[in-house]
Design a protein around this nucleic acid. Structure first.
Lengths: 220, 220
DNA sequence: CAGGTGTCTAATGTCGACATTCGACGAATG
DNA sequence: CATTCGTCGAATGTCGACATTAGACACCTG
């Protein structure tokens, strides 16, 4: 196992956990001094970590005021998913011929597992396999610039909305939607690939936005 | 005029200048202590600035070693331009109907000025107007996530390749290429808009990559 | 009572010093 | 001669303290 060397990396992991466990909620300020005391280190590595999280979009920086967990409006959520769809759609379209028969078989396996887990009500597995599926897709591009942005968005959306994903899919639907992506790749229909992936993310984003809006409604 | 309040912002501007004037060249390490002494401040704001430049991609960070001005291979240059084309292409396509008659007239004016400046050999003006043209396009999206990435790429490519842009266009060609973009928007042909803009950036990236490759050839 | 003002607090911004680590150089070894 | 290992310098990583600023609250003023 790889040991984290610098405090900065530990801080990043720690903040991930705080967000995933709702100890840090959207709108909360991430106070450097407080974290420093809690972790028994100085503020310097905390600031380093916050800058990195800023790059991804997991914290929002306001000069002279501090770092905050972003409150995303429904539109912003949809926009972020849409952007990911645009990037992944292009990446997969360009990589179209790069997907070998084995790759397609692997994708089919992902979809099978996803469907099985979904019907068994194993939400966490469904989300994890879905993540693997899309990472597998994006990783087939040789455009590293595009991959960098795709990964940043993927990570941001994953951390911020992981807890909602279990609520919003219907087992058969999620399997069918991902199967459609694999089929479009198999058909080598470039324009089709791009459209299917874009549509997938727009729909996912719309659902997440709805769920999230409903939550803040009940919370208020 | 707005005065820069924090040292960090001054450092960022300073590094921009160092890159534009070739005092910092691709491959060079940006040494914190050196900059701190030169600017008469401590290393803390230098580090802040470097983290922000990292976000844009203007410096490359290697843990425990330092920050370096990236050396981009021809492929990476093309990939970065391509990615910008994908993002801007989608942004403009979606914003298609948002462009009013006045907007289109403004775009035409940009293209006219660009052609005039190009034929007069005023390279700097051509580049600046081109920048305004594309910023005007991108700014018409209401997808802020997409705009954020577009702006980051725009800034990175601008700073790193500003000095090459004067060498690579033919006056009539540059006018014609941008006119094609305006025409495609005017025609309200969504798919056409996206394709024209993507093609524009792929071609621009390819040219820049060629020029840059030729330069490092003669330098070696 | 409303509006502006001053003060106070808690957070970020910056500093200089020390700790740690990477990479280069050169000596010891087979 | 090639290889390994230890040392050293210079750079980043981290620290604790101080400077500065945004925002809240009480106070003054009309």
């Amino acid at each position: 196992m790889i040991v984290k060397k610098t405090y900065k990396d530990q801080v990043i992991d720690h903040i991930y956990q705080l967000i995933l466990t709702d100890e840090l909620q959207p709108g909360d300020q991430v106070k450097e001094s407080l974290l420093a005391v809690q972790m028994g280190i100085s503020r310097a590595p905390i600031r380093e970590a916050l800058k990195e999280l800023m790059t991804i979009g997991l914290v929002e920086y306001r000069p002279q005021i501090g770092n905050f967990i972003p409150i995303l409006t429904p539109k912003q959520i949809i926009d972020s998913y849409t952007t990911r769809g645009v990037l992944e759609g292009y990446a997969v379209m360009i990589a179209g011929e790069m997907f070998s028969a084995e790759d397609l078989a692997q994708l089919d396996r992902y979809v099978d597992e996803m469907g099985t887990a979904a019907r068994a009500g194993q939400h966490k597995e469904v989300v994890d396999i879905g993540g693997d599926f899309h990472d597998f897709l994006a990783a087939h591009t040789d455009n590293l610039q595009l991959l960098e942005y795709t990964n940043r968005l993927s990570l941001k959306l994953h951390v911020l909305f992981y807890k909602h994903w279990g609520l919003l899919y219907k087992p058969d639907e999620i399997e069918q939607r991902h199967r459609a992506i694999v089929d479009s790749i198999r058909s080598r229909d470039k324009a089709g690939i791009e459209q299917v992936i874009r549509a997938h993310y727009v729909e996912t984003g719309t659902k997440i936005a709805t769920v999230q809006a409903a939550r803040s409604e009940t919370a208020a």
